[in-house]
Design a protein around this nucleic acid. Structure first.
Length: 492
RNA sequence: CGGGGCGUAGCGCAGCCCGGUUAGCGCGCCUGCUUCGGGAGCAGGAGGUCGGGAGUUCGAAUCUCCCCGCCCCGACCA
């Protein structure tokens, strides 16, 4: 295993190294697509399970809509086309044909099989879904309609990075229909709150909730909300979005319902999503120069037990003891792995499990057995202590809780240290020429001004925080009057 | 798509400028012995279309041209 590049030497190489060393994902033969390996997919499965339970708790149900979308569907909502047309993969044929070019047998699309109407591979599913919703919704009794789907989507990106931006990615997309604008807005905000809870309580990733500016809004949305997290290089990452779609899609797809008074009206819609991108955020929030660090609540393996022995006799004592501890802990903390591999020495195993981010390691050898104890080590801060057998059932879960809290606290601390309020353009440019971070500044509200800032500095408005300071001031860039501060940062 | 860097064993690299034995090193892998509480030691062994194609040459990893891929920086974006 090659060494992991230090964060301070080259942050993007560090990121790639952590993914390789943790065996999370690899590049595929297709540019921009990735193979998610079992260690990486286990994280996604836990994300799915936790979010899915929450969605269902709130009354949503899952369904599945097709990968291919008739090209004409995308064209129905003007802003939507504008947003996605330039990054769509298109299916034009349905058959291949063998042919010989320069003496080599090769395959070409059979010209005879050209499709009448071409299909696009979904970049998101609003259009297919709303085309169906038209058939399912007639009365206010059909509302609200609360559907989620787990799927893959494709956006043909120019530049890709593992998890953060891949041509194909996995996500969930919720699509709901409501009888009133108020209900639609409430759903949008409720789901944003679900994402905030998930990021902060499960992933130990502090986020800033707020509204996107008009420029940054989802194509076809009336209002877009986001949660924004800070990575260890001080850049912002949008960790999830929730959109109030108003009646835009209902109008484009003619989805109407009759209310209790007999009045016919278009329905109100929302959509919200979190993708495999969040795994990139998770990596960049917690991991260190020795590799991946996973918060206990999302880690596939909560603890790994390393039995230590020399002779066969010792092995026969130590392994059953390790198995017994694992069996005792599993009902309390979840998956526990006993690393029984022979030939590998304990130190090697420690290093390997550290690279893979397992939160807690328990070491048990002959000396521990004699003392009826194990050594318990935390991945994130190297804290190591002896724990008596009788204490395990309380000490291990307590340690996992401590780790979860510690990871959140230290991420929050980092964000606090890299968040400032700025008043002048000089301070602003100086900050983003240097270490960067989050800057809370006044902004006039003009989209052209926002674009000008981005062109000059590559800094964007991440969102307009809900809990922002609303005292009046002067726009950081143009000096015009402003009614409150917004969150500026360089973003992923 | 522009600018820069890189493609040689599973991984990391040397060799290339100045063409010439059988293409080398470290890690990993296989076998054996000794080891084993923080990445073990010794011995033996397996593993290569030198990214692909064309050309120059008696001879190409090495020189020339074209192509492909990867990484970084920009334009685009979740």
């Amino acid at each position: 295993m090659a060494d992991i590049t230090k964060r301070s030497d080259d942050y993007s190489r560090w990121y790639q190294d952590v993914i390789a060393a943790g065996e999370l994902a690899e590049n595929s033969p297709v540019r921009g697509c990735m193979v998610i390996r079992p260690n990486g997919y286990a994280i996604w499965e836990n994300i799915q399970r936790t979010l899915d339970d929450k969605f269902k708790e709130l009354g949503h149900v899952n369904a599945y809509f097709p990968l291919l979308i008739p090209k004409s569907f995308l064209a129905k909502e003007a802003q939507h086309v504008d947003g996605f047309a330039k990054e769509c993969a298109i299916v034009t044929h349905h058959r291949l044909k063998q042919t010989t070019i320069d003496g080599k047998i090769t395959l070409i699309p059979d010209p005879e099989s050209k499709l009448e109407e071409e299909y696009i591979i979904r970049p998101t599913s609003e259009t297919v879904i709303w085309d169906q919703y038209r058939k399912w919704i007639q009365s206010y009794r059909d509302l609200p309609l609360l559907i989620n789907q787990w799927a893959n989507v494709m956006r043909w990106e120019m530049r890709t990075r593992m998890f953060l931006r891949t041509t194909e990615f996995l996500w969930q997309e919720g699509h709901t229909a409501h009888a009133t604008a108020k209900e639609g807005r409430e759903e949008t905000l409720q789901m944003l709150e679900v994402y905030r809870w998930f990021a902060e309580d499960i992933l130990a990733m502090p986020v800033i909730t707020g509204a996107k500016t008009a420029n940054e809004r989802f194509a076809g949305a009336v209002e877009t909300f986001s949660i924004e997290a800070m990575m260890q290089d001080n850049k912002a990452l949008q960790a999830a979005t929730s959109h109030d779609l108003g009646q835009n899609f209902a109008k484009a797809f003619d989805v109407k319902f009759q209310d209790a008074e007999g009045k016919v009206e278009h329905v109100w819609a929302t959509s919200w999503g979190m993708s495999t991108r969040i795994i990139g955020a998770l990596i960049m929030t917690h991991s260190d120069d020795d590799g991946l660090i996973l918060p206990p609540r999302i880690a596939g393996t909560k603890a790994v037990i390393i039995p230590i022995w020399r002779s066969d006799e010792e092995m026969e004592q130590v392994i059953p003891a390790a198995e017994k501890i694992a069996a005792e802990l599993r009902p309390i903390i979840g998956p526990v792995h006993v690393d029984k591999r022979d030939k590998m020495r304990p130190g090697w195993k420690y290093a390997e499990w550290e690279r893979k981010g397992v939160p807690v390691r328990l070491e048990i050898g002959p000396r521990d057995l004699a003392g009826q104890q194990v050594m318990m080590a935390a991945r994130h801060d190297r804290n190591k202590q002896a724990v008596g057998f009788t204490q395990l059932a309380t000490a291990v879960p307590a340690e996992l809780d401590r780790i979860q809290q510690d990871l959140y606290d230290r991420a929050l601390q980092r964000r606090k240290e890299a968040t400032v309020q700025l008043e002048t353009w000089e301070e602003f440019t100086k900050l983003f020429k240097g270490d960067g971070g989050f800057a809370l500044c006044h902004w006039c509200g003009d989209g052209d001004c926002e674009e000008a800032i981005q062109e000059k500095t590559k800094v964007t408005i991440r969102n307009i925080p809900f809990d922002r300071d609303e005292t009046e001031g002067k726009c950081i860039h143009c000096g015009k009057s402003s009614i409150g501060r917004v969150l500026f940062s360089q973003g992923y």
